[in-house]
Nucleic acid binder design. Structure first.
Lengths: 207, 207
DNA sequence: TAGATTGTTAATCGATTAACAATC
DNA sequence: TAGATTGTTAATCGATTAACAATC
C-alpha cells in the first residue's frame, strides 16, 4: 500500500482529495471518474490517476472510483485509520484557537491538553482541556501517549522546547513558530508559517 | 524590477529569504554570499542566485549581497514597502488569535477591525480592535480602505461572504475556511488549510 | 459485446542544479 | 592584479500531461 518514496507534491494533494471526496459522499455520490473529479478539483484527470496509482489500483476500468472506498484508502495512507493524541504547547491565542478547533476530532486527531510557561495559566481549563505548567511535561508524557506536539510558542523558545519534547519521546511537531527546527532525523516537522503565507498574498496583490 | 511571470515556487521562497536575512541583520551581518546563505537556509547557492536574478542583479561579483539592501529589495517585491489594511471576518478563536498577532504590524500589515455575525459580539472590543456586526460591512468599507479580508468563518458561509466582500471592492482574501473560493480572476486568494497541513504530518509520522 | 475508464508508459514541460565566463 | 563571487547559460532532474492498451 505505502510505496517506497512518494514526492511531497503528491502527499500535499492527498488531504485535498480527501476533502472533495468527503463532500461528494455527503452529497450522496457513490462513484466518480477521474474526469468528473478533475472538473470539480481543477486538476487534470491524468494527475488524479497518476497520484492514486502511487499507492495501488483503487479504481476499476469502465467504472471509475468508489467514493467511500477511496476515502477509506486515502485515510489509511494518511494514517487517519488510527487515532492520534496531540498536546498544544503554548496556551496563547493561537494555541487556544487550535484547541477549540472541532474539525480535527472527526479525523481522529485529539488535542488532550495544553501547556504554558505562565504559572497563572496553570491548572486552568480551556474548553474542557486542562492547561498545565511546563514543568509538568515530563510527568504528563510518561503517563499519556502523545503523538504530536503543536508548538504555538514564540520563536525564541521553540528550538529549546522542541528539543526537550524530543528528549521526552515526542517525534512529530506541528510548528507555528517562525523558525526551522533542528531535530534528529526521525523527527517529523510540519511548519505553518502564517506570516509567510500572508506575504505571498501581498506579492500577488501587487502584481 | 517585477518581471513578467515568476513561478509560484520562487514567490513561496521570498518570505523565507526575508526571514533569514532579517535574522542576519539583527546579528549585525552586513554582507553575505549566496554560499553562506545557502549553508544557513539549507538550499543551494545556485537556487538563491537564480531566484534573486528573476528580479534583477542585487549582488556584486566578488563581494556577495548587502543584507540591508537585499531586505529592502525583497520587501519591495513582496509589496511590503507600502502599508496594507486588513479586516478579520469571523471573530471566533482563530480570528481573535490572528487579530492579536504582533508580527504582522512590523511588516506594515495592519488589522483594523473585526466583523462577526453574532449580534452579541457587535460593538465589543478585542485587543483594542472594534468588533462590528456583519451588516456594518458596506458602510465600513466605504469609509475605510481595506486591502485584505481575513476569512476565519465556517466553510458554509465562506463563499457567500467572499462574494459579498468582492462586491464591496475587496480584492485580496486570506482564507482559513476549508473551501476553494470561486471569485473573479482579479481577486487574489491565499488559502491556509490547517487540517490539510496536519494531515501531511500524520502521513510522514506513519511512513 | 461495446463503451467507458482505468493503469501505465511515453512525451512534455518546468524547476533545480551545475558550470563557468563576466566582473567587482 | 588575483581572488572571490555573481549573473547566466546549459545540463539534469523531477513532476505533469498526454496517449493508449488493458480490462471491467
Amino acid at each position: 500500500m505505502a510505496a517506497d518514496h512518494i514526492s511531497q507534491a503528491v502527499i500535499k494533494r492527498l488531504p485535498r482529495y480527501m476533502r472533495f471526496l468527503t463532500e461528494l459522499k455527503e452529497e450522496g455520490v457513490e462513484r466518480i471518474s477521474s474526469r468528473e473529479l478533475s472538473d470539480r478539483m481543477q486538476v487534470t484527470a491524468s494527475q488524479i490517476r497518476q497520484d492514486l496509482n502511487h499507492f495501488g489500483g483503487f479504481g476499476q476500468q469502465g467504472y471509475g472510483y468508489n467514493v467511500s472506498k477511496l476515502i477509506e484508502e486515502i485515510g489509511r495512507i494518511l494514517g487517519l485509520d488510527r487515532p492520534h493524541n496531540l498536546i498544544v504547547v503554548g496556551a496563547g491565542n493561537l494555541g487556544r484557537a487550535l484547541a477549540g478547533y472541532g474539525n480535527f476530532t472527526s479525523r481522529g486527531l485529539y488535542i488532550r491538553a495544553l501547556f504554558d510557561i505562565a504559572p497563572e495559566k496553570a491548572e486552568t481549563e480551556i474548553r474542557g482541556l486542562k492547561v498545565y505548567a511546563m514543568d509538568r511535561l515530563p510527568a504528563y508524557l510518561k503517563e499519556n501517549p502523545v503523538d504530536v506536539a503543536v508548538l504555538t510558542i514564540p520563536k525564541e523558545n521553540a528550538q529549546a522546547v522542541a528539543g526537550q519534547l524530543y528528549g521526552l519521546g515526542v517525534r512529530a511537531f506541528w510548528n507555528f513558530a517562525h523558525v526551522d527546527l533542528a531535530l534528529p532525523e526521525d523527527a517529523r516537522v510540519e511548519n505553518v508559517y502564517l506570516s509567510e503565507s500572508l506575504m505571498q498574498l501581498t506579492y500577488y496583490m501587487n502584481h
